[in-house]
Computed example of a mutant assay.
Amino acid sequence: MPVTLCVLLWETEGNGDLLAAYEDAVLALVPEHGGEVHERMRRTSLPGEPRGGDPLEVQVIGLPDDDALAAYLADPRRTALADTRDRAIARTQIVRVDRVVPD
């Protein structure tokens, strides 16, 4: 059964660029596991505007099934970047979602 994830990512203080670089690297692996990055968006704010508790990046990712998701998460090229991830990402929230199609 296809898996669709909404991924929300919060950066560690001052590491938005590092988070983006990490995500560039690991999301490039998704197609190799049969998946697709449907959407990838970043928070916008004006200089000096408070950002509150909003995530820096939101992604919608689709994979063919739970086995493909497990293979992506265990991909050695991805796990090799764990130190970078730990420095860049303060919090991750992953929500399984289904597309809502209007009647």
Rank of each mutant, 00 (worst) to 15 (best):
L69R: 14
Q93V: 14
D67M: 07
L19E: 01
A90D: 14
G52C: 07
E23Y: 09
V3M: 05
S45E: 08
R42K: 08
L29V: 03
T92S: 13
V37H: 02
R85C: 12
V97K: 02
A20H: 09
A21L: 07
L8Y: 04
A82P: 03
G16R: 15
D66W: 02
A20D: 12
A70D: 15
H38G: 01
S45H: 12
V60P: 05
L69A: 02
A88E: 03
D98N: 15
E49V: 10
L73G: 01
E39L: 15
E11S: 11
L19Y: 07
R99Q: 14
L69I: 00
G14M: 08
A20Y: 00
A20Q: 12
L9K: 02
E23L: 14
A90V: 04
W10K: 08
R85Y: 11
E23Q: 15
I61K: 03
W10N: 06
V30M: 05
A28E: 11
V37P: 11
T92Y: 04
L5I: 01
E13G: 05
L5Q: 15
V97D: 00
E49R: 06
W10T: 10
I94A: 13
Y22N: 02
V97T: 15
G48S: 05
T92H: 02
G14T: 03
A20F: 00
R43H: 09
R51E: 13
T12C: 10
A21C: 00
S45K: 04
E57G: 10
L27E: 00
G35I: 03
D75Q: 12
L27N: 15
V3Y: 06
E11R: 15
V37Q: 00
G35P: 07
R51V: 15
R99D: 13
A80I: 10
R96T: 13
A88K: 08
L8P: 00
V100E: 05
A20P: 06
A25T: 11
C6A: 12
W10I: 04
D75T: 03
P31L: 07
H38C: 00
M41F: 09
I61R: 01
I89S: 08
D103P: 15
I94F: 09
E49L: 02
R87T: 08
G14A: 06
R99V: 09
P47Y: 08
T4K: 13
Q59C: 12
M1D: 12
A80S: 15
G48H: 09
V100G: 12
V30G: 10
R40F: 03
Y22P: 01
A80F: 01
I94S: 07
R51Y: 09
E39C: 08
V3R: 13
L63V: 07
A80G: 06
R51H: 00
H38P: 10
R87V: 00
D54K: 13
R77C: 06
A90S: 09
G14Y: 05
Q59N: 09
R43D: 08
L9W: 11
T12K: 13
R85L: 05
L46M: 06
D66V: 05
G34Y: 05
A70M: 05
D75G: 05
L63W: 01
D17E: 15
P31H: 11
G14F: 06
D65M: 08
H33V: 07
L56N: 03
A80C: 10
A71Y: 04
R87L: 15
I61M: 10
G14H: 11
Y22R: 06
P2Q: 14
